[in-house]
Design a protein around this nucleic acid. Structure first.
Lengths: 219, 219
DNA sequence: GTCTATATATGGATAGAC
DNA sequence: GTCTATCCATATATAGAC
């Protein structure tokens, strides 16, 4: 199998370079968007010349689409398997925690996705209307069932999911604003504080929120 | 005052053209970002030739900065004056409603802002760390006082504000995704549904969320 | 004030030597 | 596989006629 091992050795080198390119491209695209990113900048970030980069990827578009595909694996696959047999509040707050961890650990990926959606998702629209909608509808049905059974307070499952996405991704996409508003000291603990806050937010939502004395209507 | 009225007439015409340019520019910048937008596209949208546009604004950068300044008036000024003497829950849910209305009525402005923040806010960082932080700290202090007085359940005021921003702006910035996931029918009522959902979410948060029977830990 | 024509720069992609 | 040199399209901004 001399030919196979030889081919594999070449492939491994190529893969390493491709990964370096994709890493640099993710940094650029997530910060500057598709059109705002130049091949020169990606090549510089990856330590290659521009024509050399174009030996591995035939165009800027191809690099971008490759990144989007990788991103979807991270975004759709592992996340968000609510166990209908589990404790509803724990299942949902567990999902909140995982989403927040992803905002913390993969901020560039989150911003790349946000960028694409902001622009009207020209390359992702089919995925949103197809696979994503199916997954969300399925999970929303689980949540709706829990509400029907009285195991959580009444809730609009789809909009609950939007709120979870919005609040967690905010810490990746709007990180500059979050840090500016919190100041240097509180920025250090922003993800731990966010976790406490968001778990509380959604726990109270799911438990109904009638525990606190409501102030009288007439001031 | 012949000179004054003459000057005013010129100014009015100029202002109308400037406004047409800014309107077209907002549509382009909010969709394609700063670098992704061309002067040609703005000029076409405003019904002018490119050199004619550059007679009114000396550069693309100047158009963009003008838009950002206008945006900050909308974003910072009217919004978000919590009345310390008012009903805490009503004050905060009223803010949620106003923010959601802004997402509905000014989606392009919201996306322009999101775009700038995503890129690291190169032109807004001083504003975020200065005026914005001051406003937020002030309002957060009001919320913190309410919590100390026991008028709302314990809450992290800064992160509560982030959650309000995130959940409401989501319906402007991620509108494509929201509509794709909801499907055509439910998209029609998405803002009304979002209002019901978000008001409930934050009401329950502020009232403590102990009203619903907690399921037993051991399944 | 508005146009045509153009200077100038940048960026995506290719040619061809090594 | 990697380089230098370059083509070509696009885009910002200006010159100068009207």
């Amino acid at each position: 199998m001399a030919r196979a091992s030889e081919a594999r050795k070449e492939t491994r080198i190529q893969r390493e370079k491709r990964e370096a390119i994709l890493k640099a491209a993710l940094a650029e695209f997530s910060k500057n968007g598709f059109r705002g990113t130049t091949i020169d900048a990606i090549a510089a970030g990856a330590g290659l010349s521009k024509p050399n980069l174009l030996y591995y990827f035939s165009s800027k578009e191809e690099i971008y689409r490759t990144l989007l595909c990788q991103l979807l694996d991270i975004w759709l696959e592992p996340l968000f398997r609510l166990d209908p047999a589990g404790d509803p509040v724990k299942e949902i707050t567990g999902y909140v925690r995982r989403k927040l961890e992803m905002a913390r650990d993969y901020p560039a990926e989150s911003r790349l996705f946000a960028n694409e959606i902001l622009r009207g998702a020209p390359r992702l629209k089919d995925m949103l209307e197809g696979p994503l909608k199916e997954i969300v509808d399925r999970e929303a049905a689980v949540i709706g069932r829990w509400a029907e059974e009285g195991r959580i307070a009444p809730v609009d499952p789809h909009h609950l999911i939007f709120s979870i996405w919005a609040t967690t991704q905010h810490y990746a996409d709007f990180d500059v604003q979050v840090q500016a508003v919190l100041g240097p000291e509180r920025s250090a603990t922003r993800f731990a504080d966010a976790e406490t806050h968001l778990v509380t937010l959604f726990e109270r939502m799911l438990r109904g929120g009638e525990g606190h004395e409501k102030p009288s209507e007439d001031a």
